[in-house]
Design a protein around this nucleic acid. Structure first.
Lengths: 222, 222
DNA sequence: TAGATTGTTAATCGATTAACAATC
DNA sequence: TAGATTGTTAATCGATTAACAATC
């Protein structure tokens, strides 16, 4: 597979392609053109072909793309076939919801262990995932392969726990705390789920929509 | 306030600015230049000044920006002072976690009600928010002001519930389901929290990092 | 074969960065 | 006042779109 430098925008579209291809497969569609894919995703066919061409030639002239084959290619580009191993730090509300609801294995991940400080949780297991003490975290990381740490601790613990993680050799963090972990100098890969950032973006667009509606009403009214 | 068309990239940076300004205020910093803000956020001073200039003139030559004043401006741009009203659809794992942990009021929102189909939940309330039956959803929306619906239902329910919401007059959805709600023809504002998309992007970067490391090792090895 | 559709090169568009006059 | 820093205009860079030869 090609590994040229690919822009972040392209990477962010890959999971959407994957999702759409899964939908098509579920609907029994086995072939699609970039034109039709563009219609269904609201993208131009050019962009779709450009995106794919970053990684190879997956289509066939005059025919289009084979849906299952393309799906497998994109899954592989995203690393879904690598069996990455994850650990969860913090079994509070959001951590628990992830363990209960989020199917890591659907995305090629294996959730190997969870960590918390609450004594009543330590030593138990949930959905087959053992919950260990935070005190075991460092030694666990050093003696087990861990590719990604899922950070779901309270706000106050975010920075110290991150320091412990990186000091123990963790290179990638899936961050659910509302804290900026990305140090300008750090080489750790951080992917954020910032609920509040997302809600505030939505808030902006809602405010904009209301202003437009109000302006229109005022105009019609005068 | 200016309301020119502002690019999505700019909007997505605003919550980060807000977060940083809150941090600065918590640290007792009352004044900052675009240069220093750039250092702390990993952005160029030019970009920061360009971003702010979409909405007005918030700084002072030779001085920089007053932190609390700028914070208030950005909060206002994001609509945080409008008291938007939200309802939650689906009090499962993620919905419950949002009710319990996510402080809507911190971001200017009021969570007015939640809806579910589970009989044991209906009629109860949690954190002061009443949980109502899904059957009441349509009439509730028609007789109460609702700006945003938070969609946290199971995958299968996503589309039918969205249709009910839009048919009842909802214009904005904060979508926690792993389903593409954005119809190319629809005018509904949709903001997605796609856990799996986020994890897969992270997965890509982890895979890339591993490939680079392996390539380097192979080179050193030969 | 003729029609369709790819992969890629070139053209356009938009976003980021640099430069600088204005001014606190 | 002199130094600092803004807001904005111009230059650059990168991403998207269009065009088209290659070919299934």
């Amino acid at each position: 597979m090609k590994r040229v430098k690919v822009s972040n925008n392209v990477i962010r579209r890959l999971p959407r392609y994957l999702r759409k291809l899964d939908d098509l497969m579920a609907g029994g569609i086995s072939r699609i053109s970039s034109k039709e894919l563009g219609v269904q995703l609201g993208l131009t066919p050019s962009q779709i072909r450009q995106d794919f061409s970053c990684f190879g030639e997956f289509g066939q002239q005059g025919y289009g793309y084979n849906v299952p084959a393309l799906r497998e290619q994109i899954a592989s580009i995203l690393g879904m076939d690598r069996g990455f191993r994850a650990i969860l730090i913090g079994v509070g509300n959001i951590g628990h919801a992830l363990m209960d609801n989020f199917c890591f294995s659907d995305w090629g991940f294996h959730l190997a262990a969870a960590f918390d400080i609450k004594p009543e949780l330590i030593g138990t297991s949930f959905q087959g995932v053992p919950i260990l003490s935070m005190e075991e975290l460092g030694s666990y990381i050093r003696s087990n392969p861990v590719d990604v740490a899922v950070l779901a601790v309270p706000k106050e613990a975010a920075i110290p726990v991150t320091e412990l993680l990186t000091a123990s050799g963790i290179e990638a963090i899936w961050n659910f705390t509302n804290v900026e972990l990305t140090e300008p100098n750090s080489s750790t890969i951080v992917e954020n789920i910032h609920f509040s950032d997302s809600l505030l973006s939505l808030s902006y667009y809602v405010a904009e929509r209301k202003d437009e509606t109000a302006a229109k009403a005022a105009k019609a009214d005068k």
